[in-house]
């Protein structure tokens, strides 16, 4: 086991010799072609029901969001980025060479007239956080940490209380309407136990979704980021790579080409249970203060 991979609350300790290397996803959105093979492969393997929303008009995204019936979700962002000093080009005027150079420095490519235009695509998934708030709050023990360091819901135990739904900083977890229980990405736990990679990773034609041990994925991602920066894509960044972030780093992390908010992701996610200690302490302090105040009002001067 590599010492570089951050240990989670229950892994590898509780597994002892049965612990396996921590695995996860590195989703490199810079090569995503938005084909949604990941969405379909996941549904087919895990028998997730279809859940049509109809035409949303949100670019080519008719899937909406991660949820109980969608464990991989491809986001599409059509972006027009104005470049400093160049007004929105009128349809029949053409941009200067200098402005073009600015486009390159912004890491914008494939553009035609005036401002920079690009279409960002990225496949979202449960992050399998190092500090998983959903795991912490689950009262039944349905949610558990596997020997691979991933987070999985056991459907036969889940009682549908919904605590995990509000605990997740990303809004990944959700309950199935007809069923009440919570369903989410298992990182294809059953396939892992047969030494296979998850269905989405296998289906992804461009290797945008990469599966492997987390330390190896970290190395690959760092190299890829350096490569993109060298090529002028200065907006490229890794999201969830940093073990020092609010959830201790993600088991499934991403390479994004813009701010997380652009992709509908929280910029600074924090495990909601981190503050639990302080919250209780604050509540306790408030209770003591209240009691003291009440007592003081009775002890004080009479008459």
């Amino acid at each position: 086991m590599s010492g570089r991979v951050i240990e989670t609350s229950a892994w590898p300790d509780t597994y002892g010799e049965e612990a396996r290397p921590r695995v996860g996803f590195f989703t490199d959105s810079s090569v995503c072609i938005g084909c949604k093979a990941c969405e379909v492969a996941c549904k087919e393997w895990n028998e997730v029901p279809a859940d049509p929303l109809g035409f949303t008009g949100e670019s080519y995204d008719n899937s909406g969001d991660l949820g109980a019936n969608r464990w991989r979700h491809v986001a599409f962002i059509e972006q027009r980025v104005p470049v400093d000093g160049v007004a929105e080009a009128a349809p029949d005027s053409w941009v200067e060479e200098a402005a073009r150079q600015q486009l390159v420095e912004h890491g914008l490519d494939a553009h035609d007239d005036g401002s920079g235009f690009r279409w960002l695509m990225s496949s979202d998934v449960c992050k399998h956080c190092t500090e998983a708030a959903c795991l912490d709050v689950c009262p039944t023990g349905s949610l558990f940490r596997t020997e691979f360091g991933t987070v999985v819901v056991q459907e036969d135990i889940c009682n549908g209380c919904g605590y995990c739904v509000v605990a997740c900083p990303f809004g990944v977890l959700d309950q199935r309407e007809d069923d009440g229980r919570v369903w989410k990405c298992t990182l294809c736990y059953d396939r892992l136990r047969d030494d296979m990679e998850p269905a989405c990773a296998q289906a992804c034609p461009t290797d945008s979704i990469q599966f492997g041990t987390l330390d190896e994925l970290h190395e690959r991602a760092d190299r890829r980021l350096a490569q993109l920066h060298e090529r002028g894509h200065h907006d490229a960044r890794l999201y969830g790579r940093d073990p020092g972030d609010g959830v201790g780093g993600f088991g499934a992390f991403f390479l994004l080409l813009d701010e997380p908010e652009v992709y509908g992701l929280p910029p600074d996610p924090v495990a909601t249970t981190r503050r639990l200690g302080r919250n209780w302490a604050a509540a306790a302090g408030a209770a003591v203060a209240l009691a003291a105040g009440v007592a003081a009002s009775f002890i004080g001067g009479r008459g």
Partner: peptide
């Protein structure tokens, strides 16, 4: 501008 253009170096 299609899903191909999104990954191309130049779209015309």
């Amino acid at each position: 501008f299609t899903r191909t253009s999104a990954l191309a170096d130049l779209h015309v």
